[in-house]
């Protein structure tokens, strides 16, 4: 079982024009596992999810490495073939809750359309049963509402329910909770966790909010300027962060102790994915001349915990 993966991303390099935006990213998602990829804006985490969904529209392309879904290489699928696997094998919950539905058409019409587009039947009762299981309010009449009548959080939950109905094995969520209020955010992530438990889904969750990651993820990857700098079991990464960047990131988050968070001056280099050596050097307090030339590699320092740099580990 251990060597069976639902999604494998191997040594992935994505370029836009001639510029690398993601360099040598690898990780694997087991069936029933929730993997979170976290990082600040511009680190390439959204591009990562799009490289599974299809990059054509972005004008970017995969130049090295591969994306393997359930044993099948989907790195270079055409638009039509990719459309076949979207929905039925890969579900997607976008960030923009208003954008996922047409605002002025009833949910049932839109549900039906989407299902039929994937040659699946739309059965009202199934949908209502699912709503009940997920504790949606007003389950019976929900489908006859139009999206504009609903809150952003409810809309997002409807989008998730629609994805569930299509029965994918892998769910991709791109900042799925970041525009929601904190209370609806909690509802949505609890729902995703419940669905994972009941349906054995795998979820690849992209977020900038490590608090969200902490609550649903089994494994966490931290990206910085196009590279994965730390990856491992969620508790190992969050309780014992090793990479200087991860430690900075965690120190910047207000915690239970109500201590002032500590910030980090500067911003990630825009061309960070192009750099040969470590791209955190300009902001890192441990940086030395050697760091600029050392080849990047992700090493397993503790079993189940990979890091590209362990300088100053354990320090506060």
């Amino acid at each position: 079982m251990d060597d069976k993966y639902l999604l494998e991303i191997n040594n992935l390099t994505v370029t836009y024009g001639q510029f690398k935006i993601i360099t040598e990213v690898s990780f694997k998602v087991r069936p029933g596992e929730i993997v979170c990829i976290a990082g600040e804006s511009g680190c390439g985490k959204s591009t990562l999810i799009k490289s599974v969904l299809g990059l054509k529209q972005l004008g970017a392309q995969i130049t090295e490495g591969s994306v393997i879904l359930d044993g099948r290489d989907i790195t270079r699928l055409g638009v039509e073939e990719r459309r076949q696997i979207l929905g039925t094998q890969i579900g997607y919950v976008p960030q923009n809750t208003r954008g996922s539905f047409n605002n002025i058409r009833k949910y049932d019409v839109q549900y039906k359309e989407t299902m039929n587009a994937h040659n699946l039947p739309f059965i009202r009762e199934d949908a209502i049963k699912l709503f009940k299981r997920l504790n949606f309010p007003d389950t019976e009449r929900l489908l006859s509402y139009e999206p504009w009548e609903m809150s952003g959080g409810m809309n997002q939950r409807m989008a998730i329910a629609l994805a569930v109905l299509q029965g994918p094995k892998l769910m991709l969520a791109d900042e799925a909770t970041s525009v929601l209020d904190v209370t609806s955010q909690k509802e949505v992530i609890e729902e995703l966790a419940q669905l994972r438990d009941e349906l054995g889904w795998s979820i690849l969750f992209i977020t900038h909010n490590l608090g969200v990651a902490s609550h649903i993820a089994d494994r966490l990857g931290v990206m910085y300027a196009g590279r994965m700098v730390e990856y491992g079991d969620i508790r190992k990464v969050l309780d014992d962060p090793i990479h200087p960047y991860t430690r900075n990131l965690l120190a910047a988050i207000p915690g239970k102790d109500r201590k002032m968070p500590v910030g980090l001056e500067g911003r990630p280099p825009l061309d960070g994915a192009e750099w040969e050596g470590c791209n955190f050097v300009p902001r890192c307090k441990y940086a030395c001349e050697e760091c600029k030339h050392k080849k990047y590699s992700l090493n397993e320092i503790v079993p189940g915990h990979w890091v590209s740099c362990a300088e100053g580990r354990g320090e506060k």
Binding site: S41, A252, M260, V262, G263, L264
Partner: peptide
């Protein structure tokens, strides 16, 4: 803002 930028702002306000 990103968390590290957010924390910087708080520090300066503090």
């Amino acid at each position: 803002l990103d968390v590290s930028a957010q924390a910087m702002i708080l520090q300066y306000l503090y």
